[in-house]
């Protein structure tokens, strides 16, 4: 495969969006998941405000089901660039609010994440939450604006989205509302990888082929962890795999891969027959899983 140049107009667009966000809002925050998209956002933020100390803090909603590699990487990144990091734990929300955790084979803390996020927005009075969602990921995300207004319940009303004309971003909101900002809306998965390659951006080792303990469930390769109980007919095995997206250990499946370098990963993606979120167990719940979660405040 011939790897083409990264379209730099996408970088200009993203930086323009970052600068509009800092100029239009009082308390912006960058929602940091530890995945490659939010790592790319950090890189873009550093560029947008160079030589300032990064003026926007990171917020990590910690489900407690993280890959240890992703947490280590997060802390090193924060240290290296003098970033401000806030962590809010789903575990604490569950305890404080007496919430019910999902049970059973497919239990995940995905839905509860939105509750912790909304609480954190209220606690810190964040008025703009910058996220790494891309329109090519999923059909409900394909309809997002760059500045997406959420009401005081954190809800997304897809029928009443503001018109967004040319590159004019209207971030004016009423008290209690907040805006989700998506600087890399127009990037595809391949664009993100291409940018990471050209810029030499470091990523957690999870994204590259490595040997780990996994098991098969519903045709997907799941990582073995303390958070998932195997049923009797499931057995762990060691396999060389990598992850295309990095979410919780309970909802991110691995792919069979030998791609240990970024060029090999890109070749593999370009040739791949399964779409990026195909390995996200959380989207498989129903055809409209993502839209329903967005309406409830999920990013």
């Amino acid at each position: 495969m011939k790897i083409s140049d990264f379209p730099r107009s996408l970088e200009n667009e993203a930086i323009y969006i970052f600068r509009e966000t800092l100029a239009q809002f009082e308390r912006p925050v960058l929602l940091f998941s530890g995945g490659k998209d939010s790592i790319t956002l950090v890189h873009l933020m550093l560029r947008a405000f160079h030589p300032l100390v990064p003026p926007i803090p990171l917020l990590h909603i910690d489900t407690g089901h993280n890959f240890p590699e992703a947490l280590r990487f997060r802390d090193e990144l924060v240290e290296k660039y003098q970033l401000t990091l806030h962590v809010r734990k789903v575990e604490d929300t569950i305890r404080e609010k007496g919430l019910q955790e999902e049970t059973g084979k497919y239990a995940s803390r995905n839905a509860l994440q939105a509750v912790t996020l909304l609480d954190a927005i209220e606690e810190f009075k964040f008025d703009a939450c910058i996220g790494g969602a891309r329109r090519d990921e999923e059909k409900a995300r394909a309809k997002e604006r760059i500045f997406s207004v959420r009401n005081d319940f954190g809800e997304w009303d897809s029928r009443r989205q503001r018109p967004e004309v040319f590159d004019i971003l209207n971030g004016r909101i009423h008290p209690g509302e907040n805006v989700r900002v998506f600087p890399i809306s127009n990037w595809t998965e391949l664009d993100v990888w291409n940018y990471i390659r050209e810029e030499g951006i470091a990523l957690p080792s999870l994204y590259f082929a490595h040997e780990r303990e996994v098991f098969y469930r519903d045709g997907l390769i799941w990582p073995v962890s303390d958070f998932i109980r195997l049923s009797q007919d499931e057995s762990p095995e060691r396999k060389v795999v990598r992850f295309r997206t990095v979410g919780d250990m309970t909802c991110t499946a691995a792919v069979d891969s030998q791609a240990a370098t970024i060029d090999l990963v890109m070749e593999e993606i370009a040739a791949a027959e399964i779409s990026e979120r195909g390995a996200r167990i959380d989207d498989k719940r129903s055809e409209a899983a993502m839209e329903l979660r967005k309406q409830n405040g999920y990013f």
């Binding site: 379209p7 329109r135 394909a142 897809s158 809306s185 595809t188 664009d191």
Partner: peptide, 14 residues
Amino acid sequence: IDVAHIYFHTPARK
């Protein structure tokens, strides 16, 4: 109802 953004590429461009 709303604008959906769709991405595709050919060998020539995005």
